[in-house]
Simulated scan of single mutants.
Amino acid sequence: MLTKNFLQVGDKAPCFSAVAVYEQEFRRINLSDYLGKYVILLFYPLDFTFVCPTEIIAFSEMYDQINSLGAEILGISVDSEYCHLAWMQLDRQSGGVGDLKYPLVSDLNKQISLSYNVLNHEGKSLRGLFIIDKEGIIQHSLVNNLDFGRSVNETLRTLQAIKHVQNNPDEVCPANWQPGNATIKSNPIQSKDYFQSI
């Protein structure tokens, strides 16, 4: 019998409670409070680095589109809440992130990164991205190494696809699907309609 000892898509997202910084204040974040919404967990290595602010800012700039789909974003790194606050108070031209539209969570004890299997051997979070659905189930995961960032547009597209198939359980989304594009009926006979149209 096969045994599984790692987190994967389809599993219940590990719960956590941690201090975060949002709107220049410290707040306790409980993942369980987000049940009923989609959640994007955005793990990143460290504050005050090079690629990280580009991602953190890009997701903040796309926040309204993501939030309009019933989703929230939580940024997570192994920095303290004080470090997060200092990074937010530093302007973007100087390497800070300024005001953000979503919280940055402190994972100083590294337990969240460990539970999501994104903690590397140096004790930093890899660039892990998880989309959790309204029931608390992981629907998507992506992990990049430290030196290159993720695509916010692809994250948005993936969220849209997840929402579509969950709202239309007899359909699946083909490669490069965008909202408004044709889907495939998950039926051997009806699926031919899609393949005959391409």
Rank of each mutant, 00 (worst) to 15 (best):
N181A: 12
E81Y: 14
V143W: 07
P45D: 11
S197K: 14
R28Q: 11
I112H: 08
I138H: 12
I73A: 02
E81M: 08
L156H: 08
D99R: 13
W87V: 07
E154W: 03
E171S: 05
H140C: 08
R157T: 14
D107L: 07
V97S: 11
K37Q: 14
V97G: 07
G128D: 13
G123C: 06
N153D: 09
I189H: 01
D47V: 09
L74E: 00
I40W: 05
S115Y: 14
E171A: 02
L7I: 12
V165L: 00
V172P: 00
M1I: 03
I184L: 03
N109F: 09
I189V: 09
F148M: 10
G10I: 04
S125M: 10
G95P: 07
N167E: 15
W87S: 07
F16G: 05
S125W: 08
Y63K: 02
K163N: 09
N5F: 14
T183Y: 00
K12L: 04
S115P: 14
R27H: 04
I29K: 03
I57R: 04
L69A: 03
L41I: 14
N144D: 10
K134H: 11
S32K: 09
L90R: 13
K163T: 08
F50Y: 15
T49G: 10
L74K: 01
D193G: 07
T49Y: 10
I137D: 12
K192L: 15
A175W: 06
I73L: 02
L46E: 09
V152T: 15
F26H: 12
Y194P: 05
S17M: 09
I189G: 00
Y63R: 01
R157F: 12
G136P: 10
L142P: 03
L142T: 13
I29G: 02
L35S: 02
H164V: 02
K110I: 11
S17Y: 01
E122F: 06
C173L: 02
Q139L: 08
F6D: 12
R27N: 05
Y63V: 00
R150D: 06
S32H: 04
K192C: 05
L119P: 08
V21S: 05
F16E: 06
S125C: 14
Y63T: 00
A161C: 02
D170T: 13
N153M: 05
P14G: 10
L100T: 07
Q190W: 00
I57H: 04
Q93N: 15
I137M: 14
L100C: 10
Y82G: 05
D11G: 03
G180N: 06
S60H: 03
F195Y: 15
D11Y: 04
Y194W: 10
I29Q: 01
L108R: 14
R157E: 12
R150L: 10
S141W: 04
C83I: 07
R150M: 05
K185W: 00
P45M: 12
G96N: 11
K192H: 09
V118A: 13
V78L: 08
N167M: 09
S151V: 03
I137W: 11
S68M: 05
L104Q: 15
A13D: 06
L100W: 07
K110R: 15
I132L: 08
I40E: 03
A13T: 06
I162N: 04
D133T: 04
V9P: 06
F48A: 07
E122G: 00
K134I: 09
M88E: 14
G128R: 11
